[in-house]
């Protein structure tokens, strides 16, 4: 299949489009669970590498000439299945993964020894982990347990893959489903809960500053991105369990504005499929001004959060439906994965 046949650019949707850059086929993998990118430095050269995860291993792919990729390292994790890769935003030569059966039971760091080049693993946290997020400045936040027994912990990560210090955050009496750093406020973190509240923490003191209800029309909201502007807290949310609404269909993402002083909020924008297309949100990721989601139809949809519209659609190709979508470290590349382990990289421009 040629690149031209696979590249789908629906230019009538907006000014931006997706162009196929390369394809990785992992011959040993038939159980792709996640894909991500990481900066990797070796011999004085830092490159953007692709990470692919199947249930029993995580592989790092280095770029070659002419859009080809070479599998450079594979960490084997045979005892507990890999559930997801946890991107650490400003970290080089370090991979964070979450492992478990139905829910996350372990968080591990994967690295390559600078002394002898051997592949290493370092256990960071164990427990019934409900939510985990890599934060800026080499930190990792995770919540374990539920309700009154919930523990929320920030771990600072050293280059050698060890934890430097651990700090606890005050737990809300509700299970946390997802975290997001607040852009524009260095020490602020938000999380969405199973009771559909948005919680704001001060990362320095660990205290909960506010708990605000997201709204009864939006069950089990997942926060993807948060930013503070003009005294309001804007949060990009997805609602995997939302019921379809006659007026706006079933949006994949919404932006809601919260006033943290009064705990009142209002809907700002929603991001639905263009007319004539259908499919519910399955999973997705937001980076910068771009949001991408895999839909039940096996199509990937991309939205521009500033334009407020869907800018590209990537229908299933001849190899099958899409099951994973991730933005690269730089939001100009989109990684699209299929169940058989195939990963396609698209330029989004």
């Amino acid at each position: 299949t040629t690149a031209e046949q696979l590249a789908v650019a629906l230019s009538d949707l907006g000014d931006r489009s997706l162009h196929l850059a390369s394809k990785l086929k992992n011959p040993s993998s038939s159980c792709a669970v996640d894909v991500s990118t990481v900066w990797w430095e070796s011999a004085g050269c830092t490159e953007l590498c692709i990470l692919t995860a199947c249930e029993t291993s995580v592989s790092l792919w280095k770029p070659l000439a002419s859009s080809q990729w070479r599998k450079a390292y594979t960490w084997h994790l045979a005892e507990i299945p890999v559930i997801q890769i946890v991107p650490l935003p400003d970290v080089c030569n370090l991979v964070c993964v979450a492992l478990g059966e139905l829910e996350i039971g372990e968080i591990r760091l994967l690295l390559c020894s600078s002394e002898d080049g051997s592949l290493k693993q370092s256990l960071m946290r164990t427990g019934n982990i409900k939510a985990v997020l890599g934060l800026t400045n080499r930190r990792l936040v995770s919540s374990s347990g539920a309700l009154q027994d919930q523990q929320i912990e920030i771990i600072s990560v050293l280059e050698a893959g060890r934890s430097k210090e651990r700090q606890s955050l005050m737990p809300p009496e509700e299970t946390i489903l997802a975290f997001a750093e607040v852009e524009g406020i260095r020490d602020a973190l938000v999380g969405t809960t199973a009771m559909n509240n948005l919680v704001i923490w001060n990362l320095k003191t660990g205290q909960i500053l506010k708990k605000m209800h997201v709204g009864y029309s939006y069950p089990a909201s997942i926060c993807h991105r948060a930013y503070s502007d003009s005294g309001l807290l804007f949060v990009v949310l997805s609602h995997p369990h939302a019921k379809e609404n006659e007026s706006c269909g079933n949006p994949a993402f919404r932006v809601r504005a919260f006033n943290p002083r009064t705990a009142r909020s209002t809907g700002v924008m929603f991001f639905s499929l263009p007319p004539g297309h259908s499919g519910r949100y399955l999973e997705g990721e937001v980076k910068g001004g771009s949001a991408a989601a895999v839909l039940t139809s096996g199509t990937i949809a991309v939205w521009d959060l500033f334009l407020g519209q869907c800018t590209a659609l990537l229908p299933p190709n001849t190899d099958g439906k899409w099951s994973l979508v991730r933005w690269s470290v730089t939001d100009s590349c989109l990684l699209a994965g299929q169940k058989d382990g195939s990963v396609y990289m698209y330029h989004y421009s």
Binding site: N202, G231, L233, N259, P260, R261, T262
Partner: peptide, 23 residues
Amino acid sequence: CSESDLGPISLNWFEELSTEALP
């Protein structure tokens, strides 16, 4: 969204809520 919907807005909400949350 207007201020009347959301109530009085403060540009320093994070600092104010952090001070109020101190024991």
